[in-house]
Write a protein that binds this DNA or RNA. Structure first.
Length: 177
DNA sequence: AGAATGATCCTCT
DNA sequence: GAGGATCATTCTC
């Protein structure tokens, strides 16, 4: 179950890989929505994105956190950990746990091999926050989204959550006082 | 051709 | 909380 995402929106978003135009790497983002955009970074990690928007408009959503529901043992094995909270709580971990690499770049998510399913209606409380780990164009837009009550979010999001709780608590104390 | 950089994670202190 | 790993991609010359 997807519990954390981040949005990247083409020409108006400096943090988007396609901000400066088409390259070999970001090619897939310019294609049809519903396809995987996977890239390799920091010499270690694959980032798993889903292409959104219409063909020709480069945009994608980065998957940053999953709650393992099925195939947990296999995910854990790929991640070499027993700690369920550490299997897919971050974008690099997530791709690793699913066995996704650039071999799957451009894969069709509307077929039957790799796909997403489930309710499209929002039933849970969601926190929107600034994107992290991004330079220019990162902070202004609240384009990181994660479930307010789910433990399988990335480290940065946990911090945001804790800070917001701390803020709430501080306000409450001030109110009581 | 060479250098810099990065939508991160892990280890060690 | 700091720093290293580690390499594909992109930018610069």
């Amino acid at each position: 179950m997807i519990v954390e995402t981040e949005a990247y929106h083409g020409p108006d978003d400096p943090a988007c890989h396609a901000f400066k135009g088409r390259t070999a790497r970001n090619e897939v983002m310019f294609g049809k929505p519903g396809f995987l955009y996977v890239y390799f970074t920091y010499g270690n990690h694959y980032m798993l994105n889903v292409v959104t928007e219409k063909e020709g408009f480069p945009a994608a959503v980065l998957l940053r956190g999953l709650e393992p529901l099925y195939g947990i043992e296999e995910m854990a094995r790929r991640r070499n950990t027993e700690d369920i909270g550490n299997i897919s709580s971050g974008p690099g971990k997530l791709a690793r746990s699913l066995g996704i690499t650039t071999a799957q770049n451009g894969a069709d998510l509307t077929g039957s091999k790799i796909y997403m399913t489930g309710p499209s209606t929002i039933r849970r409380s969601i926190i929107a926050s600034p994107r992290i780990g991004i330079g220019e164009g990162g902070a202004e837009r609240l384009w990181r989204f994660f479930l307010a009550d789910n433990p399988h979010v990335s480290k940065g999001s946990k911090m945001i959550r804790e800070n917001s709780y701390a803020l709430k608590a501080a306000r409450q104390m001030a109110f009581v006082k």
